[in-house]
Every structure is written in structure tokens, then in C-alpha cells.
């Protein structure tokens, strides 16, 4: 199964999204949270993120969902730190909550990394307008 790593400045946010995503992906163990710094402070840590990516990979690749600002820069740095390890890791250009849930559903269905990333990225078009059924 494609692994998923959730990056946020806040450990609680990353773990909360992991919990939500695991519900839809039946606790596959392939969804990991890499939020905050090692000591729990607010921030992002490229080394922690790269460790999570390594742990999330079972050979099918890993999709990374990150929040704002340095979340993205640290995730990109983490991907570079893994250079040469042969992990197919890709960053989704997606909102972190909606994207993670969509990615988890797709991954749990057995889709490949490209489809998982696409599902995450399409999540940005999901409207919050309940009357229109959530589609724009």
C-alpha cells in the first residue's frame, strides 16, 4: 500500500489527521504523522519527516501532505535527504486535511502512488457548500 506522511507545524494536528485518515484506511499502519519538533514544540523538522517517510514505505511509494510555509520547505528538504534510497516519495499539492483523507481512501483501495497523489490534489476542488453536494 502507498504510505502517507502528514506534516504539520503542530504535532496534535498531524496526529489528529492521521487518526481521521486511519479510520477510512482501516488502520493500515502506513499512515504516519510527522508534526512539530522532536520535543513537541511547534515547528517542522526535515529529519523527522524523512524518518517518517522511510517508515511509511513498503515499496509502493509515499505521498506527503504538508501544511503551510516551512511545512512544505521541510518536506521538500526531507525528500532530498532520501535521495538515492530508492523511495518513490512525492509531495501532494493539496489541502492537508481533505487531501490526506482522499489519499488514504485511494491508498486503501490499492491504487498506485500517481493515483493517490491525484486524489489528494483533487480534494482542493471539494466545495464546503453542502447544498451542492460538496461539488463546485
Amino acid at each position: 500500500m502507498v504510505g502517507i506522511v502528514i506534516v504539520s507545524h503542530s504535532r496534535k494536528i498531524a496526529e489528529g489527521i492521521q487518526e481521521l485518515a486511519e479510520q477510512v484506511a482501516a488502520s493500515s499502519g502506513r499512515i504516519l504523522a510527522a508534526g512539530g519538533l522532536e520535543d513537541g514544540e511547534i515547528g517542522t523538522d526535515a529529519v523527522r519527516i524523512s524518518d517518517a517517510i522511510r517508515a511509511a514505505d513498503d515499496g509502493d511509494g509515499v505521498a506527503v501532505l504538508a501544511d503551510l510555509g516551512s511545512g512544505i520547505m521541510s518536506a521538500e528538504t526531507a525528500v532530498e535527504l532520501l535521495d538515492g534510497e530508492g523511495i518513490d516519495v512525492r509531495l501532494a499539492d493539496a489541502p492537508v486535511v481533505e487531501g490526506a483523507i482522499a489519499a488514504a481512501v485511494e491508498a486503501a483501495c490499492g491504487s498506485g502512488i500517481a493515483e493517490v497523489i491525484r486524489a489528494a490534489e483533487e480534494a482542493r476542488f471539494v466545495s464546503k457548500n453542502i447544498e451542492t453536494g460538496g461539488r463546485p
Binding site: 507545524h9 519538533l37 522532536e38 514544540e41 511547534i42 515547528g43 517542522t44 523538522d45 526535515a46 529529519v47 523527522r48 510555509g69 516551512s70 520547505m73 521541510s74 521538500e76 528538504t77
Partner: peptide
């Protein structure tokens, strides 16, 4: 660089780390 990447926390971490 590696130390700054993992301890700074903000954008300046990956920037100065890199």
C-alpha cells in the same frame, strides 16, 4: 546544516540548513 534542519522549526530551518 542537519542540526539546523531538525531544531530550528520555522522556515529559517530548511533555509539555513540547506
Amino acid at each position: 546544516g542537519m542540526t539546523l534542519l531538525s531544531t530550528v522549526g520555522g522556515a529559517s530551518g530548511p533555509l539555513y540548513g540547506t
